[in-house]
Amino acid sequence: MTNAVDEMRAKTLFDVIKEPCGMDTILSTENLCRDFKIGDGSVVNALKNINIEIEKGKLTILRGRSGSGKTTLINILGALDKPTKGKVMFGGRDITRLSERARDDIRRYKMAFVFQSVALMSGMTAYENVDFGLRLAKYPYEERDKRTRECLRSVGLEKRMFHRPGEMSGGEQQRVAIARAIAHKPDIIFADEPTAELDTATALHVVKLFKELVARDEMTIIMTTHDPSMIDIADKVYTLEDGEIVE
């Protein structure tokens, strides 16, 4: 019964989030602001009137120094947080106005996340980590094994799929996290500083993998970074300074 209810909720969600925001736009913001109150009662303006458009099938980078607001922005774009004011338009709808349950469903079925810490289950193999992600997304049982192997093969880990994270390098762990993110075929992937803990060569390899996914599978990826060496690989770059987009 629970599975049937979950499937019905997913179908309803897909009916709602299906209208294009523009011919090439999958996600956009309108005058997005985010304020935080700190201990002494004063207010910090973390984001100020952010207006951006994310194109389908492109790698977009949000760049900026620590404290520039890029993580705050990606959290709001990914429905993990809400703005103080302004809109986030996804699939033609303002997702900031949806209920928490609807936002949970959007994250589960339509989005995916790759974090700096990789956030893998240490007791599970690479295969089990990807399969677990598919189970959470209610991916059809009979297709899970094929899809899990397919995704690990696409990131070059077909020979390491039965190793646990502790038996892998940092770059391999991040590739498992990417395989898990793409497995349920999300509309958009958010990667928050995915290369921050990696050496330069490994970091470039991970970003080139993102680029391959964009070119081969038409994935839409938004990535934050403070590393200038990553910029030339992006299709589009937005630079943040003190919570604002600058040229």
Rank of each mutant, 00 (worst) to 15 (best):
T2I: 11
N3H: 08
V5Q: 08
D6R: 10
D6G: 09
E7I: 12
E7F: 12
K11R: 09
T12F: 04
F14S: 07
F14E: 11
D15N: 08
D15P: 04
C21S: 07
C21A: 05
G22D: 06
M23N: 04
D24Q: 03
I26W: 00
S28E: 10
C33P: 02
K37W: 13
V43N: 09
I50K: 01
I50D: 06
N51G: 03
I54A: 01
G57A: 07
L59Y: 00
I61V: 08
L62W: 06
R63W: 13
G67M: 05
K70A: 09
I74D: 00
N75T: 14
N75L: 12
G78I: 01
A79R: 10
L80A: 12
K85I: 10
K85Y: 12
K87D: 07
K87S: 07
G91M: 06
R97A: 15
E100Q: 15
R101C: 14
D104R: 10
D105C: 02
M111F: 13
A112L: 06
V118H: 15
L120C: 06
S122F: 12
Y127W: 14
E128K: 04
E128Y: 05
N129R: 11
N129D: 14
G133R: 06
L136D: 08
A137Y: 04
K138R: 09
E142M: 15
D145K: 15
D145C: 15
T148V: 09
S154V: 15
S154N: 14
G156I: 14
E158R: 05
K159I: 13
R164T: 03
P165W: 10
M168Y: 14
S169H: 14
G170R: 12
G171S: 12
E172S: 12
E172W: 15
Q173R: 14
Q173L: 13
R175W: 07
A177N: 08
A183F: 15
K185R: 11
K185C: 14
P186K: 00
I188H: 01
I188E: 03
D192I: 03
T195Y: 02
A196L: 07
T200G: 03
A201F: 11
L204C: 05
V206S: 08
K211T: 10
E212W: 13
V214Q: 00
R216M: 09
I222F: 02
T224H: 00
H226C: 13
H226W: 09
D227N: 10
D227Y: 05
S229H: 07
I231G: 03
D232A: 08
I233C: 06
I233M: 07
A234C: 03
K236W: 02
Y238T: 00
L240R: 02
L240H: 02
D242T: 09
G243W: 03
V246N: 04
E247R: 05
E247L: 08
